[in-house]
Design a binder for these strands. Structure first.
Lengths: 219, 219
DNA sequence: TTGCAATTCAAACAGTTGTATGAAACTATT
DNA sequence: AATAGTTTCATACAACTGTTTGAATTGCAA
């Protein structure tokens, strides 16, 4: 059907443009020009610009979450219901990092679109994003299973830190390259994932010493 | 002079609105309404909307950098030219974290404006932001002095991670609160700084073990 | 007070945005 | 081949954007 071709062309063009420039910098006319369709097509097929963004976000959100949960399930089953904390964190940050920094262009567009969505918080997305909380809770639970002795509050901080490292690395990769004069290799995806996972795990497992140091610092 | 009062009112209103809603969501009419001045005042006093943003950014950028460097200088002098890595990192992330999460409302506005600026990368700011690279290099150098045995590339990653943790904690504080059901106390600024500093320092000082683990993970 | 510059103001400008319309083109069933 | 339903298209629309204009007002020096 010609209908689906137009829809798909719009979705592709919109996702790519949004991923590249951000939501506020892309107009409907940019999208339809890139997609090679008529201006009215967006409203005809999606109702409005916001609904287009929402559909894009929901689709990608589901895909990312499934990818993460599959990886989590795999490592937990391999460990008899309890995976090493490094594996849990890798399941959390791996898909996004691989997506954004890896060689697969289509995957990169999708992943970068999600990064934009988490940054710009445009109205149509803000309403839906609460769903992600419950998704993250499943990872918090898995992390707690990995580290039964770590207090719950530290689990949340660890989860937050892991996402922070992954996220910001994608967003600021350009600055890191400049700052380090190219010393930090942003193409070594596995190396980056390893760095993020290690740093986040360390913050969690060295927590007792860390908490003590924290108290000392406060004094 | 009445002139300066109008200028100041515009700057205040603009900074606050930008900090709250982001650049793309605030119009000149919003700003002049909040400032209680005429629409044409912005163009009269600043030339254009972009120049207003640029002036705001430059002013705040200078203030933040000075605050950081003062703290760095203090701890390095106290240690005879070489400060503990925790102190260096605290000088880097402390001012912004204290500014954004602390009780001082005016400071919070300023700090949050800078966060927005680092996120949205609107054209007038993008041109100026390169200056920050050289500022960060001074911290990289200080960190290298603190940890002479750590390879340069790891220093950059550590610096990047420290900023990532601080930054994202400010940006995503709402989600962290929701996710943890309020367990993570975002009002405990010193505690948060301690967590960020500890996590970033750990990633740097445990690097040799970390690098080994990273290689193992890749296999 | 008078005169001049600086500042404020209401109004309008040109450009862009998302959306709506109605005619045209197409598709598929009869 | 004729018709009904779907999809495309050029075009127009109203709302909003940053900016400009020229007259009114203000503040201050002579």
């Amino acid at each position: 059907m010609a209908t689906d071709r137009t829809r798909a062309a719009i979705l592709n063009a919109a996702e790519q443009l949004y991923a590249e420039r951000g939501f506020s910098e892309v107009t409907l006319r940019d999208i339809v020009a890139a997609a090679g369709v008529n201006l009215a097509a967006v409203n005809y097929h999606f109702g409005s610009k916001d609904e287009l963004i929402a559909e894009l976000f929901v689709t990608r959100s589901i895909a990312t979450n499934r990818e993460r949960l599959n990886e989590l399930k795999a490592v937990e089953e391999a460990g008899g219901g309890r995976a090493p904390i490094e594996a849990v964190i890798r399941a959390l940050v791996g898909p996004t990092l691989r997506g954004c920094l890896g060689p697969d262009r289509q995957r990169a567009t999708a992943a970068r679109f999600m990064i934009r969505a988490s940054i710009e918080a445009v109205p149509p997305i803000r309403k839906i994003r609460n769903r992600e909380i419950s998704h993250l809770r499943r990872f918090a639970a898995a992390m707690q299973r990995s580290l039964p002795d770590v207090p719950e509050v530290d689990i949340y901080w660890g989860l937050h830190f892991a996402l922070a490292l992954a996220h910001q690395t994608i967003r600021d990769s350009e600055r890191l390259t400049k700052l380090s004069n190219g010393l930090c290799d942003l193409d070594d995806v596995d190396g980056i994932i390893a760095r993020v996972v290690t740093a986040a795990s360390l913050a969690l497992t060295t927590k007792r010493a860390g908490a003590a140091a924290a108290k000392a610092q406060r004094a």
